[in-house]
Design a protein around this nucleic acid. Structure first.
Lengths: 343, 343
DNA sequence: TTGTACGCGTTATCAA
DNA sequence: TTGATAACGCGTACAA
């Protein structure tokens, strides 16, 4: 009887299973990795021993030995917001279906928090790393340049960057909103910014709006609310932009939260939407079709981003084949303008 | 010059850093773990080497050696739904602030998917495991009984169970809804179930409703919509329950999604809420205060559950001290009835 | 189909 | 304050 080892996790090991079956550990290892290379009878005996011992493979040891892991790290601005949740969910679903795990962290649009998460995640030798947008700290850039771990950047499509890109052009979203409102006959069109400081993508949307306004000889009109809470900020914006001598006749908001706040404020103030002031959002959140008037908005391909990012990663890892990969949209994804009652 | 080793991750190792500094690896290891036990001068030299090599500690190797990790696994029914997202977010925030990572998986209320996730997570020797509700497969029960990893069950409070519990009594929620409606004078009160098959907690809410109805000599009236999509199911329920000869004068829905569907259907059908039929939900989703009439509902302590679960785990791990732990609510958490216009 | 030998990169233990 | 040595549990490479 061997003396108890100095340190151990207390869990059953491959060796314990092997010993019980009367083989060496490598056979049990094969049973898990390439069952076809173990005889049918052996498989049964091993399965029994595994069940009896309640053996759970030690992934940490396995990953150290193989220098591979089935974990994928994802850093996203926030988990609970209405925007990114669908991307996380669809990404996670595809991964899980292929036996991969999701390591998740939120950055709150902070490059520093993102960097911390990336560093921690890289320490796990993840199979891949998924980031949001292309705006990172210098430290993050250095790490992703150095690592061999495949990196995917999501939400924002930037063709010139090295990491894989799965997203859409936010600039185009701002253009789309401005075009739509101009076409519908609005002229005094304002754009309302959100507060989140690091949300670079929202600035891209603003720039798209400004560009189209200028192209049509209209004066861009960007409003930045002081309030941080989105509903309140939306209300603030609506009040400020309609109280003027020459009030806005349409407002494009940086997101649906702001737009919803404005919609409520308009209702309370007796300002008819869209006849006196049209309101448009971005995001197509769950509540947007439920508001009255329901909200005209632009719907980003949130689920598609998650799915495609996952498939691209899995293809890169050799888990899904070329044909499957070939069926995926390439390049920039499209947002959809959802025309409802508010604009 | 030593021959290249057969396998390696290609990353800089503790050894590489040590070699550059001219010490052994254990000193560099200490630099990361207990900096105070390394001389100030040495710290500086190591810091330089770490930066130059872009060294990122290999957590996999570290965890294997120490049989500890700073990862916490969480299995939750879904990520993108309006209910659990806040719990995930607050849980993740507290963990991250203490240097822990979150490994996340969704079960979609399936005991089998939950079991798969638990098995995979246990393979990572996580510092803790967080599950939702107390309803697990036999395999999951066996694993959590066997493992030394601390387990927390959230959302549902079940005082008699062994794992730590952070949640509220769903039964009580059903009682609360029924009491409220009865007190407001409603008598023909229906309860509308949701579709998600494995959502045991929703059945608890229903049972609470039934109990209170019976106690008041009122006939419980449970309706189960056929539609799976929640808005549609809510609409179906409203139509069915108001088209009767003796229609419902109040409906408690299993969640706010169903209630929102009903609210829209009522609007379209010209049924005034709450005078002709009161509507109540559960969840207090983001859109609930935005609907018109805005939705009376019961708000679960979603963020609190995440925070408290995290703190309890960290206390168990010795990361937060007893005083901090003592400041946390113990036992069953409370839901809040948010009285608005719809009931 | 199964086995032997050894390394993966780190930390625990004991020693200086 | 620093070092030597031996695990940690598994997978790779090669052999039988």
């Amino acid at each position: 009887m061997p003396a108890r080892k100095r340190r151990n996790s207390g869990r059953a090991t491959l060796q314990d299973v092997a010993q019980r079956v009367g083989v060496t550990s490598i056979t049990v290892s094969r049973y898990f990795q390439q069952p076809s290379r173990v005889s049918a009878e052996m498989r049964e005996r091993i399965a029994t021993a595994v069940a009896e011992l309640g053996y759970v493979p030690n992934l940490v040891a396995g990953n150290l030995a193989s220098a591979k892991s089935r974990v994928i790290g994802m850093v996203i601005p926030n988990i609970s917001g209405p925007i990114f949740a669908n991307t996380i969910q669809s990404f996670s679903d595809v991964l899980t279906a292929h036996g991969y795990q999701l390591l998740l962290a939120s950055s709150y649009f902070s490059a520093e928090l993102e960097e911390n998460a990336v560093r921690a995640f890289l320490g796990w030798s993840p199979a891949a790393l998924v980031l949001t947008s292309h705006h990172h700290s210098a430290g993050t850039e250095r790490m992703i340049a150095r690592t061999k771990v495949p990196v995917v950047e999501t939400w924002d499509y930037q063709p010139h960057r090295a990491p894989m890109q799965v997203g859409f052009a936010h600039h185009q979203v701002g253009r789309m909103a401005a075009h739509y409102l101009i076409e519908r006959g609005y002229r005094r069109i304002a754009f309302v910014q959100n507060h989140a400081a690091g949300d670079i993508s929202a600035l891209d949307r603003r720039d798209g709006y400004v560009e189209v306004m200028n192209a049509h000889g209209l004066k861009p009109w960007v409003f930045v609310p002081k309030a941080e809470a989105p509903f309140e900020a939306g209300q603030q914006a609506l009040e400020a932009l309609t109280a003027r001598r020459y009030p806005a006749d349409a407002i494009a908001f940086a997101n649906d939260n702001l737009a919803a706040g404005a919609l409520l404020a308009a209702q309370r103030a007796g300002i008819d939407v869209p006849t006196r002031c049209a309101i448009m959002g971005f995001g197509d959140y769950a509540f947007s079709p439920l508001l009255s008037p329901n909200l005209t908005t632009i719907r980003p391909p949130a689920r598609a981003i998650g799915e495609i990012a996952a498939m691209r990663v899995l293809h890169r890892l050799g888990v899904v084949d070329d044909d499957t990969q070939a069926g995926l949209p390439t390049g920039e994804l499209e947002c959809e303008l959802v025309a409802r009652e508010s604009a």
